[in-house]
Nucleic acid binder design. Structure first.
Lengths: 199, 199
DNA sequence: CCTACCGATCGGTAGG
DNA sequence: CCTACCGATCGGTAGG
């Protein structure tokens, strides 16, 4: 087993722990213990704990990006692309919910240039969805409204999956994605019901 | 200023820090510094760092509970109650996004009996929404489907607000809640559009 | 509420 | 990759 494999093992173990007990709640020795190593031995492969977090966040971000960017820029109606982007996004989350969690939450522990890079990645990623939704509004496929709010509503709803999804659950990833798509695109109301009591 | 006020100040400062840099990423001395105290001085008012977290989580949980439970059990159609519950939930988040964040995320750092209590609170709270949605389905106000999934989709979407809402933003809490309600109840589609390319 | 301290643990390094 | 260690910081306590 060469050094590259070891580094990958370190990232795998660290990602698991960061997702479960937070970056700050995980010590270098916790990570080492998962690989039956001494704490200091990790530094033959890494240069800092924060660098490990960065590498995991970067990889997770790339997976999200790769799963939706080409669909966003591709052919098809805005609504069709959005549906497929949701499948891609949900696919990344269900494939490795803990990796997704690190990208979604633990990036906050990054500082300086790394932090700025993550913020850029996140903005760009949200932009893929926002642009497609805006396009759908312009082309009257989607009811006009606040595209930024709709985007955040959608992505937050999908990201929640990472909190409860168990691999091998009753719902397959694409079934889950399509159920979410159904909720998002046509809502849950059967017929127009009573308005709420005003305040 | 009596001890009770000091305890409240400690919880306020701790809640802010826990939300911003995680429970594990906040030291007792960080909290003390916010109040211009020495680290050890906090222990005149608290018995442990974890107890402070518990008190914050408990209070936040109670606020969520108080904002929706009576609506859930009250009168009105299921759809009407659900709309008002969403207003209550969003109201708690917008009133103090950091307090909400501690309840939504930092409870994971609680152990033993406190952890079990939080899990119970969270289950019960989710149940208020799930039951109203189920009731709406039974009464054909809401399109039949997976009530548990719809509940998680909705609550995750709303909870995302805590991540970006700034007090004094362009959208007032009730406007924001109603915009979310609109997205959730009737979706974002204008007309039935093309199905996605199948896999 | 402060000073001064406890043992434990932190991220990281030197030298082999 | 280990042993052994560095200074800093951790949550918490004693005694005033």
């Amino acid at each position: 087993m060469d050094g590259h494999q070891r580094l990958h093992q370190i990232e795998q173990a660290a990602g698991r722990l960061f997702a479960e007990r937070t970056y700050a709640g995980t010590s270098v020795r916790d990570i080492a213990r998962e690989l039956d190593l001494q704490g200091g031995s990790l530094y033959a492969h890494i240069s800092s704990k924060e660098e490990v977090l960065w590498r995991i966040v970067e990889r997770a971000g790339r997976e999200f990006h790769d799963a939706v960017s080409s669909i966003a820029a591709g052919t098809g109606s805005a609504v069709d692309r959005l549906h497929r982007m949701i499948r891609g996004h949900v696919g990344v989350i269900t494939t490795d919910p803990r990796l997704a969690t690190v990208f979604l939450h633990e990036w906050k522990h990054l500082e300086g240039g790394w932090r700025e890079k993550v913020l850029g990645m996140r903005d760009a990623y949200e932009g893929y969805f926002r642009d497609v939704i805006s396009e759908g509004m312009d082309e009257s496929e989607i009811a006009s409204g606040d595209a930024a709010l709709s985007t955040r509503f959608l992505l937050s709803a999908l990201n929640g999956i990472a909190l409860w999804y168990q691999t091998g659950g009753q719902l397959a990833p694409d079934e889950l994605a399509d159920a979410c798509w159904s909720l998002f695109q046509s809502g849950m109301l059967l017929s127009s019901a009573s308005a709420p009591n005003g305040h």
